[in-house]
Design a protein around this nucleic acid. Sequence first.
DNA 1: TTGTAGGCGTTATCAC
DNA 2: GTGATAACGCCTACAA
Lengths: 337, 337
Amino acid sequence: MNIGEIAKRAGVSRSTVSYALSGKRPVSAATAQRINDVIDELGYRPNASARALAEGRTRTFGLVIPPASTRLTDVQLAFVASVVEAAAVHDHDVLLSPSGGDHDRSFERIVTGRRVDGVILMEILLQDPRVERLTSAGLPFVTIGHVEDPAASWWVDVDYAGLISRCVRHLADLGHSDVVLINRSDELVAAGYGPALRATTAFAGTARECGITAHTVCCPDDPAAGVACFEEIRTRWPEVTAAVTINEAALPGVQRALHRAGLDVPQDFSLTGVIADRLAEDFHPPLTAADVPAGDMARLAVDLLLEQIGDPSATPRHSMLAPPITLRSSTGARRRA
Amino acid sequence: MNIGEIAKRAGVSRSTVSYALSGKRPVSAATAQRINDVIDELGYRPNASARALAEGRTRTFGLVIPPASTRLTDVQLAFVASVVEAAAVHDHDVLLSPSGGDHDRSFERIVTGRRVDGVILMEILLQDPRVERLTSAGLPFVTIGHVEDPAASWWVDVDYAGLISRCVRHLADLGHSDVVLINRSDELVAAGYGPALRATTAFAGTARECGITAHTVCCPDDPAAGVACFEEIRTRWPEVTAAVTINEAALPGVQRALHRAGLDVPQDFSLTGVIADRLAEDFHPPLTAADVPAGDMARLAVDLLLEQIGDPSATPRHSMLAPPITLRSSTGARRRA
DNA sequence: TTGTAGGCGTTATCAC
DNA sequence: GTGATAACGCCTACAA
């Protein structure tokens, strides 16, 4: 069933039905009523493809997710769900696209097939081929994380540098003089993953300012790696009494390794970092940490994307989020300072 | 740029370009070459909306995910990623739709706007309004989990009843005479969530057959609930020496409660159930459990959906998966039998 | 306030 | 082997 059918049954022209639906032209109350009755009776809804073709817009966003090979973390998941939710608020749908691996066809379909009005790109690298592809395709996009030139594009990010700095200062204030950063994987760092790089720099810099000793280790995104990583820390730097981390997926392993080593938190060892609230609260004891506000980021990303779609020539805008660090029970004074 | 532009530059008609791309009509090698050169030079890709309108199919699936309010579990997450991957293999895209809450508009858009060729429905209830909606809309769909009448629709499911039975027998064989089922939440059970119901029935039935005592508790999907739930079990039935669970999200809490109660696994307490391999292996000690094969289910669901789209009047088919129970280290003989 | 008609970019049916 | 041309279903000037 199509708009013509509705028009026929309501005894009006197709354009009148169209205008009655869009409200872009006044329609008399009587006709509007008649049209709506027919629509309700037949359960008519406009064909999205036809509308997209005529309007030149699809009311759909593309969401490029990290490769499924590297298991999606809890935050990433929450982010996907939040984007869908935020898009739904504006009556938009979300088309998912895996990236990396051999999924270039999927990405290309989305970028070049005019299937979407804009794209949200997760887990961006400082130099990212997908960003260049989108730029050259002239498709509006917002990245989660920013590229090398912050003014060049639209993005939403978390101020990892600032948050990590504050974590380090917090630990220094508590008397810790030997701390370690449990970063994300070597591969991500090597690939130029911004948050990991900024965390590293801020960590070392702030430690220097505070006059304390800092070590950094990279750790793959899984619990087993967390165990191995923590054991390596104990072996290499037994004097370390506190850790800062941005690696959520490794946390359960760190928890287990702490327990196995007979270390009490925060009595013997302090732990903090940038960790989603849910995970921080599930930790034992609850972690002093900065939240990764997936919901806020998703809403902001969608807002920025809509703004950009509305005016593609606007100068890029962005949001750097600095969530508060919530004090819980995982950090304490260094023992026998 | 459109197909006409390509045609003009290649000196042929639009239809020839179309046929050169689809291969549905022979095209001379020379013209094909010329057309391809122009296409490569201009980076042309057909407009997806126009194609969908003309062909009457969108090459897109809808994936209806559980409400975001109840946090997505690890398996659900893996499943989403796997569906996208499986769809990509067939050059299809995936449109996400949240369900529940106030997301009916989103669901309706997808169902009735002809935005997708078919739908995959996660976390189905025994009586599910969305199933009826899709049926009445005449849109092909595959459910994960099955509805009351198994022959009525297309589905993929895990044989929870069979797996739970085998878990119970395994525990009985080990000498356990008092066991408990840690089910999913009260709400899900009340809503008629199939796996939870079938697990309950199979658990009680098999325990009766084996002549052992069985208790069942419902537990919300989160670690804190897992702690509370296990403590309740210890209080109400201190004689219980083994548990079967299908609640992955509660596992970390169960782990913590076991530890807090000073119970060694499997020395003092045995634990098994239906748990994704990754989680089972991350447990301490690794869990004897049946995997939830998210990847297989996703691929099967996509295959079934494509089959149904190809022949909408075909009689419904389905797949009941019975993954093996992998013996690891979390089950042992009952102490002091 | 309403109707007519052309166009959005493809696919597919005819005809040559 | 190739070209016109009519759908596909909607939106939106332009007319009345």
